[in-house]
Amino acid sequence: MDLAQLTRNLEALRARAVGAAAAAPDTAALDALEVGVLGKKGDLTAILRGIGALPAEDRPKVGAIANEVRTAVEAALHEARSGLGGAELAARLATEALDVTTPGRPIRRGSLHPIIETAREIAEVFAQFGFVVYEGPEIEDDRTNFQMLNIPPDHPARDLWDTLYLDVEGLLLRTHTSPGQIRVMHEERPPIRALLPGRCFRYEAVDASHASEFFQVEGLMVDEGTSMADLKGLLDQFAHAMFGAHRPTRFRPGYYPFTEPSVAFDILCVICDGEKCPACSRTGWMTILGAGMVHPVVLRYGGIDPERYQGFAFGMGVERIANLRHQVADLRLYMEDDLRFLGAFR
Protein backbone atom coordinates (compact mmCIF):
# COMPACT_ATOMS: atom_id res chain seq x y z
CA MET A 1 0.00 0.00 0.00
CA ASP A 2 1.34 3.39 -0.85
CA LEU A 3 0.86 6.75 0.64
CA ALA A 4 -1.78 7.86 -1.78
CA GLN A 5 -3.91 4.76 -1.22
CA LEU A 6 -3.67 5.09 2.52
CA THR A 7 -4.63 8.73 2.32
CA ARG A 8 -7.66 7.91 0.19
CA ASN A 9 -8.74 5.22 2.63
CA LEU A 10 -8.51 7.69 5.48
CA GLU A 11 -10.50 10.33 3.64
CA ALA A 12 -13.13 7.73 2.77
CA LEU A 13 -13.39 6.70 6.42
CA ARG A 14 -13.82 10.31 7.41
CA ALA A 15 -16.57 10.86 4.90
CA ARG A 16 -18.39 7.70 5.89
CA ALA A 17 -18.10 8.28 9.64
CA VAL A 18 -19.17 11.90 9.49
CA GLY A 19 -22.10 10.93 7.30
CA ALA A 20 -23.07 8.07 9.60
CA ALA A 21 -22.87 10.35 12.68
CA ALA A 22 -25.18 12.86 11.12
CA ALA A 23 -27.59 10.14 10.13
CA ALA A 24 -27.52 8.21 13.43
CA PRO A 25 -31.05 7.67 14.78
CA ASP A 26 -30.08 7.72 18.47
CA THR A 27 -27.13 8.00 20.82
CA ALA A 28 -26.76 4.22 20.94
CA ALA A 29 -25.95 4.23 17.21
CA LEU A 30 -23.42 6.97 17.82
CA ASP A 31 -21.84 4.91 20.56
CA ALA A 32 -21.56 1.94 18.16
CA LEU A 33 -20.19 4.20 15.45
CA GLU A 34 -17.58 5.61 17.81
CA VAL A 35 -16.42 2.15 18.81
CA GLY A 36 -16.46 0.95 15.18
CA VAL A 37 -14.45 3.88 13.84
CA LEU A 38 -12.29 5.18 16.68
CA GLY A 39 -12.13 2.16 19.03
CA LYS A 40 -9.03 0.04 19.60
CA LYS A 41 -10.28 -2.47 17.09
CA GLY A 42 -11.94 0.13 14.96
CA ASP A 43 -11.59 1.10 11.31
CA LEU A 44 -9.07 3.84 11.90
CA THR A 45 -6.71 1.53 13.74
CA ALA A 46 -7.16 -1.06 11.02
CA ILE A 47 -6.19 1.42 8.30
CA LEU A 48 -3.18 2.61 10.22
CA ARG A 49 -1.88 -0.89 10.52
CA GLY A 50 -0.75 -0.44 6.93
CA ILE A 51 1.60 2.36 7.91
CA GLY A 52 4.47 -0.01 8.62
CA ALA A 53 4.76 -0.71 4.87
CA LEU A 54 5.40 2.94 4.03
CA PRO A 55 8.73 4.57 3.77
CA ALA A 56 9.91 6.20 6.95
CA GLU A 57 9.66 9.73 5.52
CA ASP A 58 5.92 9.22 4.63
CA ARG A 59 4.85 7.96 8.03
CA PRO A 60 4.50 11.38 9.78
CA LYS A 61 2.33 12.62 6.89
CA VAL A 62 -0.10 9.72 7.38
CA GLY A 63 -0.09 10.32 11.17
CA ALA A 64 -1.07 13.94 10.61
CA ILE A 65 -3.90 12.99 8.29
CA ALA A 66 -5.10 10.27 10.69
CA ASN A 67 -5.27 12.86 13.53
CA GLU A 68 -7.30 15.18 11.35
CA VAL A 69 -9.72 12.35 10.59
CA ARG A 70 -10.02 11.44 14.29
CA THR A 71 -10.69 15.06 15.24
CA ALA A 72 -13.26 15.44 12.51
CA VAL A 73 -15.09 12.27 13.48
CA GLU A 74 -15.06 13.21 17.15
CA ALA A 75 -16.48 16.59 16.30
CA ALA A 76 -19.18 14.99 14.18
CA LEU A 77 -20.04 12.56 16.97
CA HIS A 78 -20.20 15.38 19.52
CA GLU A 79 -22.41 17.44 17.35
CA ALA A 80 -24.72 14.53 16.66
CA ARG A 81 -24.87 13.66 20.37
CA SER A 82 -25.85 17.19 21.36
CA GLY A 83 -28.69 17.16 18.93
CA LEU A 84 -29.93 13.75 19.88
CA GLY A 85 -29.51 14.30 23.71
CA GLY A 86 -31.58 17.50 23.71
CA ALA A 87 -34.41 15.72 21.96
CA GLU A 88 -34.25 12.79 24.33
CA LEU A 89 -34.28 15.09 27.45
CA ALA A 90 -37.19 16.96 25.99
CA ALA A 91 -38.99 13.67 25.50
CA ARG A 92 -38.33 12.66 29.11
CA LEU A 93 -39.52 15.99 30.49
CA ALA A 94 -42.62 15.66 28.39
CA THR A 95 -43.45 12.35 30.04
CA GLU A 96 -42.94 13.93 33.49
CA ALA A 97 -45.53 16.67 33.00
CA LEU A 98 -48.14 17.12 35.81
CA ASP A 99 -51.57 18.66 35.82
CA VAL A 100 -50.41 21.82 37.54
CA THR A 101 -53.94 23.09 38.00
CA THR A 102 -54.81 20.65 40.79
CA PRO A 103 -55.03 22.11 44.29
CA GLY A 104 -52.00 21.95 46.56
CA ARG A 105 -51.62 19.19 49.06
CA PRO A 106 -53.60 20.49 52.02
CA ILE A 107 -51.73 21.51 55.15
CA ARG A 108 -53.94 21.78 58.24
CA ARG A 109 -54.97 25.37 58.71
CA GLY A 110 -55.30 26.94 62.12
CA SER A 111 -56.96 30.22 63.02
CA LEU A 112 -56.65 32.71 65.84
CA HIS A 113 -59.77 33.73 67.69
CA PRO A 114 -61.04 37.13 66.51
CA ILE A 115 -61.61 38.43 70.03
CA ILE A 116 -58.14 37.61 71.32
CA GLU A 117 -56.67 38.88 68.06
CA THR A 118 -58.64 42.12 68.27
CA ALA A 119 -57.43 42.63 71.84
CA ARG A 120 -53.90 42.07 70.61
CA GLU A 121 -54.36 44.61 67.83
CA ILE A 122 -55.76 47.14 70.28
CA ALA A 123 -52.73 46.62 72.51
CA GLU A 124 -50.44 47.07 69.52
CA VAL A 125 -51.95 50.45 68.68
CA PHE A 126 -51.51 51.77 72.19
CA ALA A 127 -48.07 50.19 72.56
CA GLN A 128 -46.96 52.61 69.93
CA PHE A 129 -47.80 55.40 72.36
CA GLY A 130 -45.96 53.84 75.28
CA PHE A 131 -48.82 51.91 76.86
CA VAL A 132 -47.72 48.68 78.54
CA VAL A 133 -49.92 45.73 79.33
CA TYR A 134 -50.96 44.76 82.85
CA GLU A 135 -53.42 42.15 84.00
CA GLY A 136 -55.57 41.77 87.07
CA PRO A 137 -57.49 38.86 88.56
CA GLU A 138 -60.93 37.91 87.29
CA ILE A 139 -62.10 37.10 90.80
CA GLU A 140 -62.25 40.53 92.37
CA ASP A 141 -63.41 41.96 95.65
CA ASP A 142 -66.25 44.42 95.93
CA ARG A 143 -63.89 47.06 97.21
CA THR A 144 -61.62 47.07 94.16
CA ASN A 145 -64.33 46.42 91.59
CA PHE A 146 -66.65 49.11 92.96
CA GLN A 147 -65.84 51.04 96.10
CA MET A 148 -62.36 52.22 95.17
CA LEU A 149 -63.78 53.22 91.81
CA ASN A 150 -66.09 55.66 93.58
CA ILE A 151 -69.08 53.32 93.52
CA PRO A 152 -70.14 52.89 97.14
CA PRO A 153 -72.41 50.05 98.23
CA ASP A 154 -76.06 50.72 97.38
CA HIS A 155 -75.14 53.44 94.91
CA PRO A 156 -77.68 53.70 92.08
CA ALA A 157 -74.83 53.66 89.57
CA ARG A 158 -74.37 50.01 90.48
CA ASP A 159 -77.29 49.37 88.17
CA LEU A 160 -74.86 49.95 85.30
CA TRP A 161 -73.16 46.66 86.19
CA ASP A 162 -75.29 43.62 86.83
CA THR A 163 -72.95 41.61 88.96
CA LEU A 164 -72.29 37.92 89.42
CA TYR A 165 -71.45 37.37 93.08
CA LEU A 166 -69.38 34.48 94.37
CA ASP A 167 -69.97 32.14 97.25
CA VAL A 168 -67.19 33.83 99.16
CA GLU A 169 -68.21 36.90 101.13
CA GLY A 170 -67.13 40.11 99.42
CA LEU A 171 -65.92 38.44 96.23
CA LEU A 172 -67.39 38.74 92.78
CA LEU A 173 -66.47 38.23 89.16
CA ARG A 174 -65.10 41.50 87.89
CA THR A 175 -67.74 43.35 85.91
CA HIS A 176 -65.17 45.41 84.03
CA THR A 177 -61.43 45.79 83.68
CA SER A 178 -61.54 49.07 85.60
CA PRO A 179 -60.39 47.59 88.95
CA GLY A 180 -57.11 47.11 87.12
CA GLN A 181 -56.70 50.89 87.34
CA ILE A 182 -56.45 50.62 91.11
CA ARG A 183 -54.06 47.69 90.90
CA VAL A 184 -51.76 49.48 88.45
CA MET A 185 -51.71 52.61 90.59
CA HIS A 186 -50.71 50.52 93.59
CA GLU A 187 -47.92 48.97 91.57
CA GLU A 188 -46.54 51.96 89.67
CA ARG A 189 -45.84 55.64 90.21
CA PRO A 190 -46.58 58.20 87.49
CA PRO A 191 -45.91 58.50 84.68
CA ILE A 192 -48.33 55.65 84.09
CA ARG A 193 -49.47 54.43 80.69
CA ALA A 194 -51.22 51.12 81.21
CA LEU A 195 -53.39 48.88 79.12
CA LEU A 196 -55.47 46.19 80.80
CA PRO A 197 -57.12 43.55 78.63
CA GLY A 198 -59.16 40.75 80.08
CA ARG A 199 -62.26 38.68 80.57
CA CYS A 200 -65.22 40.23 82.39
CA PHE A 201 -68.51 38.89 83.65
CA ARG A 202 -72.02 40.26 84.07
CA TYR A 203 -75.37 38.98 85.14
CA GLU A 204 -76.75 39.48 81.66
CA ALA A 205 -79.03 37.22 79.65
CA VAL A 206 -77.24 36.24 76.47
CA ASP A 207 -78.58 37.48 73.14
CA ALA A 208 -77.23 38.92 69.91
CA SER A 209 -75.90 42.01 71.64
CA HIS A 210 -75.36 40.86 75.24
CA ALA A 211 -73.00 38.35 76.72
CA SER A 212 -72.42 37.31 80.29
CA GLU A 213 -68.74 36.73 79.60
CA PHE A 214 -66.92 39.15 77.40
CA PHE A 215 -63.61 40.92 76.98
CA GLN A 216 -62.64 44.48 77.71
CA VAL A 217 -59.56 46.58 77.30
CA GLU A 218 -58.96 49.31 79.85
CA GLY A 219 -56.51 52.14 79.40
CA LEU A 220 -55.02 54.38 82.07
CA MET A 221 -52.64 57.29 81.76
CA VAL A 222 -51.61 59.41 84.74
CA ASP A 223 -49.06 62.18 84.89
CA GLU A 224 -48.79 65.76 86.04
CA GLY A 225 -50.32 67.36 83.00
CA THR A 226 -52.25 64.55 81.33
CA SER A 227 -55.42 66.18 80.04
CA MET A 228 -58.57 65.42 78.17
CA ALA A 229 -56.84 66.76 75.06
CA ASP A 230 -54.32 63.92 75.35
CA LEU A 231 -57.19 61.49 75.73
CA LYS A 232 -58.84 62.83 72.62
CA GLY A 233 -55.62 62.71 70.65
CA LEU A 234 -54.91 59.12 71.56
CA LEU A 235 -58.44 57.94 70.93
CA ASP A 236 -58.41 59.65 67.56
CA GLN A 237 -55.23 57.76 66.73
CA PHE A 238 -56.86 54.57 67.89
CA ALA A 239 -59.99 55.12 65.82
CA HIS A 240 -57.92 55.88 62.76
CA ALA A 241 -55.80 52.78 63.30
CA MET A 242 -58.82 50.53 63.65
CA PHE A 243 -61.37 52.13 61.36
CA GLY A 244 -59.43 54.04 58.75
CA ALA A 245 -57.36 57.19 58.67
CA HIS A 246 -60.18 59.54 57.89
CA ARG A 247 -62.91 58.20 60.14
CA PRO A 248 -64.47 61.21 61.90
CA THR A 249 -64.80 60.96 65.69
CA ARG A 250 -66.49 62.88 68.45
CA PHE A 251 -66.67 63.15 72.21
CA ARG A 252 -69.99 63.52 73.91
CA PRO A 253 -70.79 63.63 77.61
CA GLY A 254 -71.10 60.30 79.33
CA TYR A 255 -71.34 59.06 82.87
CA TYR A 256 -69.09 56.78 84.87
CA PRO A 257 -68.60 57.14 88.61
CA PHE A 258 -64.84 56.65 88.24
CA THR A 259 -64.24 59.44 85.75
CA GLU A 260 -65.08 63.13 85.95
CA PRO A 261 -65.67 64.52 83.42
CA SER A 262 -66.85 61.40 81.59
CA VAL A 263 -67.30 61.05 77.85
CA ALA A 264 -68.51 58.59 75.28
CA PHE A 265 -66.29 58.28 72.22
CA ASP A 266 -68.14 57.94 68.93
CA ILE A 267 -67.00 57.26 65.41
CA LEU A 268 -69.00 58.14 62.35
CA CYS A 269 -71.16 55.13 61.54
CA VAL A 270 -69.05 52.63 59.60
CA ILE A 271 -72.14 51.34 57.83
CA CYS A 272 -73.78 54.53 56.60
CA ASP A 273 -71.01 57.12 57.02
CA GLY A 274 -73.34 59.38 58.94
CA GLU A 275 -76.36 59.06 56.70
CA LYS A 276 -78.29 57.52 59.65
CA CYS A 277 -79.17 53.86 59.43
CA PRO A 278 -80.55 51.18 61.75
CA ALA A 279 -77.04 50.07 62.71
CA CYS A 280 -76.39 53.46 64.33
CA SER A 281 -79.93 53.87 65.71
CA ARG A 282 -80.35 56.58 63.08
CA THR A 283 -77.91 58.89 64.79
CA GLY A 284 -75.11 58.60 62.24
CA TRP A 285 -72.65 57.78 65.03
CA MET A 286 -71.50 54.64 66.78
CA THR A 287 -70.17 54.62 70.31
CA ILE A 288 -67.05 52.51 70.59
CA LEU A 289 -65.88 53.21 74.12
CA GLY A 290 -66.33 55.17 77.31
CA ALA A 291 -63.66 57.36 78.84
CA GLY A 292 -62.96 60.31 81.04
CA MET A 293 -60.59 61.98 83.43
CA VAL A 294 -59.82 59.72 86.36
CA HIS A 295 -61.98 60.78 89.31
CA PRO A 296 -59.91 62.30 92.11
CA VAL A 297 -61.39 59.75 94.50
CA VAL A 298 -60.06 56.94 92.34
CA LEU A 299 -56.60 58.52 92.25
CA ARG A 300 -56.62 58.76 96.02
CA TYR A 301 -57.65 55.14 96.42
CA GLY A 302 -54.77 54.39 94.08
CA GLY A 303 -52.43 56.26 96.40
CA ILE A 304 -51.88 59.13 93.98
CA ASP A 305 -52.25 62.78 94.95
CA PRO A 306 -54.98 64.27 92.75
CA GLU A 307 -53.70 67.78 93.35
CA ARG A 308 -50.40 66.95 91.71
CA TYR A 309 -51.41 64.28 89.21
CA GLN A 310 -54.28 63.83 86.85
CA GLY A 311 -55.03 61.37 84.13
CA PHE A 312 -57.52 59.67 81.95
CA ALA A 313 -58.99 56.21 81.68
CA PHE A 314 -60.92 54.51 78.95
CA GLY A 315 -62.61 51.16 78.61
CA MET A 316 -63.90 49.37 75.57
CA GLY A 317 -65.62 46.12 74.76
CA VAL A 318 -63.41 44.04 72.52
CA GLU A 319 -66.46 42.37 70.96
CA ARG A 320 -67.79 45.78 69.96
CA ILE A 321 -64.58 46.62 68.14
CA ALA A 322 -64.42 43.16 66.56
CA ASN A 323 -68.05 43.37 65.45
CA LEU A 324 -67.39 46.59 63.61
CA ARG A 325 -64.14 45.43 62.10
CA HIS A 326 -65.32 42.01 60.98
CA GLN A 327 -68.98 42.84 60.39
CA VAL A 328 -70.27 40.38 62.94
CA ALA A 329 -73.87 41.03 63.98
CA ASP A 330 -74.29 38.43 66.70
CA LEU A 331 -72.06 38.36 69.77
CA ARG A 332 -72.92 34.74 70.49
CA LEU A 333 -70.83 33.61 67.55
CA TYR A 334 -67.65 34.40 69.44
CA MET A 335 -68.20 31.86 72.19
CA GLU A 336 -70.10 29.25 70.24
CA ASP A 337 -66.77 28.25 68.73
CA ASP A 338 -68.22 26.88 65.52
CA LEU A 339 -65.19 26.16 63.35
CA ARG A 340 -67.16 27.16 60.28
CA PHE A 341 -67.15 30.67 61.78
CA LEU A 342 -63.72 30.69 63.41
CA GLY A 343 -62.07 29.14 60.39
CA ALA A 344 -62.71 32.32 58.42
CA PHE A 345 -60.27 34.27 60.57
CA ARG A 346 -56.52 34.42 60.14
Partner: peptide, 29 residues
Protein backbone atom coordinates in the same frame (compact mmCIF):
# COMPACT_ATOMS: atom_id res chain seq x y z
CA UNK B 1 -67.71 68.58 83.51
CA UNK B 2 -70.49 71.18 83.48
CA UNK B 3 -68.27 73.64 81.65
CA UNK B 4 -67.15 71.03 79.15
CA UNK B 5 -70.56 69.63 78.34
CA UNK B 6 -72.25 73.02 78.05
CA UNK B 7 -69.47 74.32 75.82
CA UNK B 8 -69.37 71.08 73.87
CA UNK B 9 -66.48 68.64 73.71
CA UNK B 10 -65.43 69.82 70.29
CA UNK B 11 -63.63 72.55 72.19
CA UNK B 12 -61.19 70.01 73.59
CA UNK B 13 -58.20 69.85 71.26
CA UNK B 14 -56.81 66.54 70.05
CA UNK B 15 -53.10 66.20 70.82
CA UNK B 16 -50.62 63.38 71.14
CA UNK B 17 -49.16 63.28 74.67
CA UNK B 18 -45.69 64.72 74.93
CA UNK B 19 -45.14 63.96 78.60
CA UNK B 20 -42.58 61.60 80.03
CA UNK B 21 -42.83 57.93 79.00
CA UNK B 22 -43.00 55.19 81.62
CA UNK B 23 -40.14 52.72 82.06
CA UNK B 24 -40.01 49.69 79.82
CA UNK B 25 -42.09 46.77 81.01
CA UNK B 26 -42.31 43.47 79.17
CA UNK B 27 -45.77 42.45 78.07
CA UNK B 28 -47.30 39.64 80.09
CA UNK B 29 -48.82 38.42 76.84
Amino acid sequence: EEIARVRGYELVPSVTPDTEMPDYRPSPL
